[in-house]
Amino acid sequence: MNIFRLAGDISHLLAIFILLIKIWRSRSCAGISGKSQVLFGMVFLTRYLDLFTSFISVYNTVMKVIFILATLVTIYLVFFKFRATYDSNNDTFRAELLVIPIAGLAVLVNHEFSLFEILWTFSIYLESVSIMPQLYMISKTGEAETITSHYLFALGLYRGLYIVNWVWRYYTEQFYDWIAIVAGVVQTLLYCDFFYLYITKVIKGKEMSLPA
């Protein structure tokens, strides 16, 4: 554990709770892509199967359980409790076009051909693109509430901080995992456009709107 990794995890946790609080307080999931949330649910459920096979630390176990539960609650709020507010007409990204090729890629390109390792690889690849339905939705409607943009910023920052953590670990522990690194870089790059808009608009107190 190092400071970058810890900051990344806190940023990730913050993102998930910003989204939950936004939905709960406004009693609405307007502007939120349910598809992205389902993809994140799949990411956590396939990656954290090792909860049942290996104990790493209390921190590790608690964080995994929180990520899974909080994401499942978010999915419940979007598709059940506040379903009437879910903007499904604008949540039209074809998520299966991500999931199917990624499942194939995980089977072909992995560290070890075993069930848990392939599922872990699938979750790493899938996480890198899971935000695409949400970004697509924002570009389609041309706007995002300020709180939604805080959510996206925290979520993007998380993987960016993990990259710094990987650089740190490479020099201090000679540890690297190229699957995580490549996918993490792709994931962070997807947010670049958004980061630019966030810094130039949201921080200056303006609503986020994207050029058509």
Partner: peptide, 10 residues
């Protein structure tokens, strides 16, 4: 080096 059994990162 990759620890295939235990992955400590989230």
């Amino acid at each position: 080096w990759i620890n295939r059994q235990i992955k400590d990162e989230l």
